[in-house]
Amino acid sequence: MTNSTEETGIKSILLITALFSIFVIFLIMAFIFVEGWPAFADYGFFKFLLGLKWDPNNNIFGVFPMIVGSLYVTFFALLLAVPLSLLCAIFMAEVAPNNIRKFLKPVIETLAGIPSVVYGFFGLMVIVPRVRTTFGGTGFSIFASGIILAIMILPTIISVSQDSLKAVPNSYREASYGLGATNWQTIRKIIFPAALPGIVTGIILGMGRAIGETLAVIMVAGNVSQIPSSIFAPVRTLTSNIALEMGYATGLHYNALFATGVILFIVIMILLLITNYVQRKYKMDVGGGTL
């Protein structure tokens, strides 16, 4: 076998695998849209999107409370996780002595490896009762799910941010110190802004994980399909809705659950477009292209 035929052979194999993975993604998208379509067609897209009541036994399908639920839970999780993980990443990348860093890194990586059912169980047995005794209500709430999700997305944001902080060239630091800046001034004015694009990528990845997380949220959110009256009220997220009822659904109910998936897809696309716009506006460049 000559070298050139081998080259073309390997090239085409690589091309096929790349095409295959794209093909699978489109296949999944097409499947979700095809299965969800009857719900939009029979029930009405806006009635489905803006309906306030979800009662599959009486063929009432309104996902609006779940869109609100998903967004609330995700943003509350980000609100808790972003400051915490950024400070942690800065500490690990810039401040921590080597032996502490060697201890912290594997610990945080372990956090990422814990299965979500364990997080959910921890939330159910530890966080939900605390929330109930401290703030009243049932304890199943946006608050409890936000805390659990925040813990779950910490490792993602920390490790991506830490890598991008480390990637800032050493000459920046030396120049800053040379001008008489303190360590904190250097971090705040030089290194953090330089690493910002990577940090934003980390936050976006964390957001994706938070909005997509299902099992842990089902266990602590209470899953009541309602517009929450406070942060301590139970909610149902889009992903929980699909997971809760998929096992039993038939007919229009089945299509409505796929349609919920379509809505989730649209919500994620909109969130990505917004972050993309913000990044462009502030001229932030995410490694490997914009998201």
């Binding site: 159910l124 089902i218 266990m219 899953n223 139970p234 997971a243 809760l244």
Partner: peptide, 11 residues
């Protein structure tokens, strides 16, 4: 309608 929903007997 505001009863908390859990998805399994164990939960």
């Amino acid at each position: 309608s505001d009863a908390v929903i859990q998805s399994s007997t164990e939960a």
